[in-house]
């Protein structure tokens, strides 16, 4: 359960002030499938970053699964990110030096999971995302769709309650993008809360709840 109450996020550039989020309030129940759409610069990414505890709001309260997480310390936020949130980015953000398997393994390592258990969980993920024969490949040797599959495997390896995807198909062609969306929807069916920021109307329409944003405010919220 994600509960944002009067969240404000202000960026200052010199003496200019940008209200990336202006008094945003929203509840997203566990297991929902939500798309966020809106013009560029409307605050979609900022909203996702606040939900994912990557960014701190300047005002308002944020409650996650019944706990107020607004004022958590840096370390506690890292722990919550690790345990409850999975991020998928437009540009994949794989570590170029590490193989596909090692990239997927990263969150397990950060969590302190023992190596033997890590191996079996990574193997399972490789199977689930059809990456078995790409396990030892580095990101530069993978196609865009394969890279995003690795990123999704990494985002879900610790079984987060919420998966936050910021334009996950933005760098993929239409057919591959549809495949990736199908993969994310599969995770939603398995119970994960799925929040997708997208420009693509068609893909956005597949969500069960559609949030529209403009100038840092929520202007539409339809199911």
């Amino acid at each position: 359960m994600i509960r944002l109450a009067a969240i404000t996020r202000v960026f200052r550039m010199g003496d200019q002030e940008v209200r990336a989020l202006n008094n945003v309030s929203i509840d997203i129940a566990s297991g929902e499938y939500v798309s966020i759409m809106g013009p560029s610069g409307s605050g979609k990414s900022t909203l996702l970053n606040v939900i994912g505890l990557l960014d701190r709001p300047d005002g308002g309260r944020y409650e996650l699964d019944g706990n107020d997480v607004t004022d958590l310390s840096e370390n506690e936020r890292a722990r919550v990110r690790r345990e409850k949130i999975g991020f998928v980015f437009q540009s994949f953000h794989l570590v170029p030096r590490l193989t596909a398997a090692e990239n997927i393994e990263l969150p397990l390592m950060l969590e302190g999971v023992a190596p033997t258990e890590r191996k079996s969980r990574v193997d399972a993920a490789l199977d689930a995302f059809d990456l078995r024969d790409r396990a030892r490949h580095r990101p530069s040797e993978l196609s865009g769709g394969q890279r995003q599959r690795v990123a999704i495997a990494r985002a879900t390896i610790l079984r987060p309650t919420a998966l936050l995807a910021d334009e996950p198909t933005g760098n993929l062609d239409h057919r591959i993008g549809a495949e990736v969306m199908a993969l994310l929807e599969g995770l939603h069916h398995a119970g994960t809360t799925l929040i997708v920021v997208t420009h693509d109307r068609e893909l956005g329409a597949r969500a069960h709840r559609h949030i529209g944003m403009r100038d840092g405010e929520i202007v539409a919220d339809e199911t």
Binding site: L54, N75, A78, R82, H93, L94, P107, R154
Partner: peptide, 14 residues
């Protein structure tokens, strides 16, 4: 890469 590590839950100490 550092940003990514933080996004997947690395602490500053990590």
């Amino acid at each position: 890469e550092i940003g990514l590590l933080k996004a997947v839950g690395a602490t500053s100490a990590d």
